[in-house]
Design a protein around this nucleic acid. Structure first.
Lengths: 140, 140
DNA sequence: CTTAATGCAAACGGTTTGCAGCCCT
DNA sequence: AGGGCTGCAAACCGTTTGCATTAAG
């Protein structure tokens, strides 16, 4: 069973219908090594399917978010970027010149435990972004 | 020398003029224990100075950002929040129910050093946000 | 067949911009 | 006095919404 079918099942399990548009969006996210904006996804699909609307992309990404199928991130600028939730918790290292993005393992488990004790908060989630210059961009 | 004068000097040192509007904005930021949106700042000032425009607030916050006087954060929703840069590097713990915000010490120095070695990146900055439920909100 | 999802157009909210006049330095 | 800063209005851009139609289950 290919991984597209895996995601189809995940959606169906949550009662989210498996439409052509949703299949296309998942396919684009699967094919990408980095988080994508709604506009990125729309741009990639528009040529093959001109009737697709940006609002459909947004609506679906939001359904996916509600169903914990994707997660949204504010990496650069004001726009949200989306990535599939594959169970592998990680963060991002972003080159501020070329926008390259490297996924990073999470170093925060111990910190979160300590935080829970110190503050009395129930810790639910966190986001971390590291900004820098990649080896290419720093040499010029 | 009160701390408002301190910020006045910082701005003047960078060639940013010390106008009435800027003084008001800095004052509001100084008085707040948590990051504020442009709209928050605007709302607090509008009553005393009805001629103030939201665009002026934005323009100034952006000048301040360029001059490394303030930093902007995406803590909740789509809007940016701003805080003065007082040299004390920290992060935020945010209650997703009541929007309470607690500043946190940064646990990432060692991680950044390791990252530099592992990836070849020059590390410039980072952002971390922890989401949870504060002691009040979790009991209901 | 029923109801959720889509296409389409229009609105929305945060943020930016162009321009004439104002006021820091 | 000169050039940056402001008030004001309008544009901009990412995102959401209302509604009639289409398609998934």
């Amino acid at each position: 069973m290919g991984s597209l079918e895996l995601w189809e099942q995940k959606l169906k399990d949550k009662g989210i219908r498996w439409t052509k548009q949703r299949r296309m969006i998942i396919r684009v996210l699967l094919a990408s090594t980095r988080p994508l904006s709604a506009q990125d996804i729309f741009a990639k699909l528009q040529r093959d399917y001109p009737k697709l609307r940006l609002s459909t992309v947004y609506r679906n990404l939001n359904s996916f978010k509600d169903g914990k199928i994707v997660r949204s991130l504010n990496l650069t600028g004001n726009e949200q970027k989306f990535e599939l939730i594959d169970g592998n918790h990680h963060h991002h290292l972003i080159c501020i010149e070329c926008d390259d993005i490297i996924p990073l393992d999470c170093p925060l488990k111990d910190f979160e435990n300590k935080l829970k004790d110190d503050t009395g908060y129930t810790i639910l989630d966190h986001r971390m972004k590291i900004y820098g210059l990649c080896p290419n961009c720093k040499n010029y």
